[in-house]
Design a protein around this nucleic acid. Structure first.
Lengths: 128, 128
DNA sequence: CTCTTAATCAACCAAACAGTTGATCAACGT
DNA sequence: ACGTTGATCAACTGTTTGGTTGATTAAGAG
């Protein structure tokens, strides 16, 4: 059993899992409640085997878990895993934005945001 | 020119772009300031051609932009695009969490979180 | 004009992946 | 025991991707 928590592999699998419209739709559906493979298969014009594979991907990525209930194997969305992803993204987004703001102050912001991206591109290199 | 803003394709490309450790490292690097292809290529033991491809992927995903400065083509991280990703994830994460909390109240929370996931799995199906 | 640097394009190889069909397994209900 | 339903496993196909090498464009510097 792997206990990587938030290693490179885990992030790989998590983002890769979300990089598919079917799997994102599955996540969207699961946010409203657990569901079985067959329930998930109906809306999408693909076989349940394919859906089963998608769920395996999501499970291997740590985004969903499964439990046993008679023959049924309801799939459950793990909200904590989703939060770990947003945490990773925000980590760097906030750094970039803070850098952005520092630059704003340095230039005495009299420019619009769109032009800003272009004008500051070269400036930044000098003061890093 | 495509103006999809936040369509399925855009999300596909964005998540796929982040599903690679090299590209994530590039994002991490860019959060600290713009950089050229060669600058980005050095730390990773891969050729600059490969890095160029990675950047194309990131650019096509709308996560980075590029400008011209003589021969240099500094790559710039687009924080707004990152925020769109976290917004998408949070959208469903919050739904799942709110559902989670409703369940907590229904059961009169006397259980730990870990056991909770297992015990509630079956209950939920009934009340959806 | 020539040389160097930055970056891309083109062709190619190996690995990984999505989706299909067909067979198999597990847990029920009758 | 039998049939049914939920779900997985196995093998196959077409497509995509990551990475390499080699040639090529673009922009300066001498």
């Amino acid at each position: 059993m792997e206990h990587d928590a938030l290693g490179s592999d885990t992030l790989d699998r998590a983002f890769m899992a979300l990089a598919d419209p079917v799997r994102r739709a599955i996540v969207a559906r699961l946010s409203r409640g657990d569901a079985t493979v067959n329930e998930l298969a109906e809306p999408f014009a693909i076989t349940k085997q394919a859906v089963s594979k998608h769920i395996q991907v999501l499970e291997h990525a740590g985004l969903v878990t499964r439990s046993r209930d008679a023959q049924r194997r309801p799939v459950h969305l793990d909200a904590a895993a989703l939060e770990r992803l947003t945490a990773w993204i925000d980590q760097y987004r906030l750094i970039a934005e803070s850098r952005f703001r520092q630059l704003d102050e340095l230039l005495g912001a009299g420019i619009s945001h769109q032009e800003h991206e272009n004008t500051t591109a070269k400036k930044k290199e000098e003061l890093t």
